[in-house]
């Protein structure tokens, strides 16, 4: 191998290195930006209490007993409160398919990690909305 071909190799490597340094990384800057989620994503649920008829089909469909229904807690005429336990939920989608009244849906939110086990037990107030506490870390706010 001659001197010049080695030099050529070195230059080729250097050119590749510089090009890679200048381009944007292939990874996402999580949590500043998130990856693409399709519409079918089975993330955490949202409960639309206006449509709910307290038929408890979602509770019966759940294979892991992650849903608890409270029929006393009423906001509208005939709805019920749902308590979700996300330590048990396996995101199978059976409850959403069981709902005939368009009251329960999956959302695209999949980053559910919390500090304590209790925080993963979503009460009716958290099930009805997608808003959540902003994540603060080292003085910066995410989400």
């Amino acid at each position: 191998m001659g001197f010049f071909s080695t030099l050529g190799d070195i230059f080729r490597v250097l050119r590749h290195t510089f090009r890679q340094t200048m381009t944007r990384p292939f990874t996402y800057f999580y949590p500043f930006e998130d990856r693409y989620y399709p519409d079918t994503t089975r993330g955490r649920h949202i409960h639309i209490r206006k449509n709910c008829t307290a038929c408890a089909q979602c509770v019966k469909a759940c294979p892991t007993i992650a849903i608890r229904i409270d029929k006393q807690d009423r906001m509208y005429e005939k709805d019920a409160a749902l308590h979700f336990d996300y330590t048990r939920c396996i995101f199978c989608g059976l409850c959403v398919q069981a709902c005939k009244f368009n009251a329960l849906f999956h959302t695209k939110i999949v980053d559910l990690s919390e500090e304590t086990r209790e925080d993963l037990q979503y009460g009716p107030d958290r099930m009805g909305t997608l808003e959540r506490k902003p994540l603060k870390w080292r003085g910066r706010t995410f989400r």
Binding site: P38, T40, T41, R42, I90, F91, C92, G93, L94, Q97, H106
Partner: peptide
């Protein structure tokens, strides 16, 4: 798989009598 069923691994696609999620263009 995720685009079709909404989950990358635990797909839960077949149901007795058919499938749960329909093909779309994407």
């Amino acid at each position: 798989f995720e685009e079709l069923t909404g989950s990358r691994h635990a797909v839960s696609y077949s149901a007795p009598g058919g499938v749960k999620y329909d093909f779309n263009e994407k």
